[in-house]
Amino acid sequence: MRDVSRIEAAAVQPGRGEVLHRLGLEPADVATPRLEDLLVRSAALFARVAAPAAVFEWVTREDFATIYEGDGENAPASPLDEIFPRADALALFAVTLGSAIDQAIRDLFDRGDSALGYVLDVSASYAADRLADLTAERFLASLRRSVSGGIRRVLPYSPGYCGWHVSGQRALFESLRPDDIKVALTASCLMDPLKSVSGVFVAGRGTVHRFRPTYPFCDACTTQQCRVRLATVK
């Protein structure tokens, strides 16, 4: 099953608090009037130029095993190695905010308005993640319509993180072919437009997603984002 969707920019647009959080401000911090002005202008620009689109396609565990193997550059062991064989269902996905927002950010930096460019960039990064989450929910809804059982949770996993080498994008794109939402892959495995996210949705009971973050690459990880995700699965 393949699902392509266009989403309203408002559905993924971060609120003031979310942008401030990504900018490093805590709720108790006071934003200056100039920063408030940037937030307002960035939000208006986002609403004008963001064009969110998403695609996902169901994939079997066997087919995903081949895709995951990719060019053979993954870490010898990784969380996804443990997780995907336990999954009830899998889907490859790609989401994008479109090329106009990339261009808008670039233009702002080019003309010296780096502050606004940066706030828009931060907002767009948040929105791309949110779009992936919304698309995961859409995948979950499609599963609940067609599969019985206790699928409670879908989480996205992407090449370039947690031992899945970024070159894995090649096999993923060859299989998913997200031309319908206009996302392409460069020779260096970079997605164009930049504000795009791709990977695999893993569906199953919450416990499917559990792993111990003690792989060799975990030491060098600067985000430790997995700990936040792990805290959300039961």
């Binding site: 900018l23 490093g24 911090d29 100039r34 920063l35 780096s114 502050a115 940066y118």
Partner: peptide
């Protein structure tokens, strides 16, 4: 010292520019 945030730095840089 985390007294101000990156956009504040960028606004100052814009003024410098």
């Amino acid at each position: 010292e985390h007294e101000i945030f990156l956009p504040d730095v960028l606004l100052a840089a814009r003024a410098m520019h």
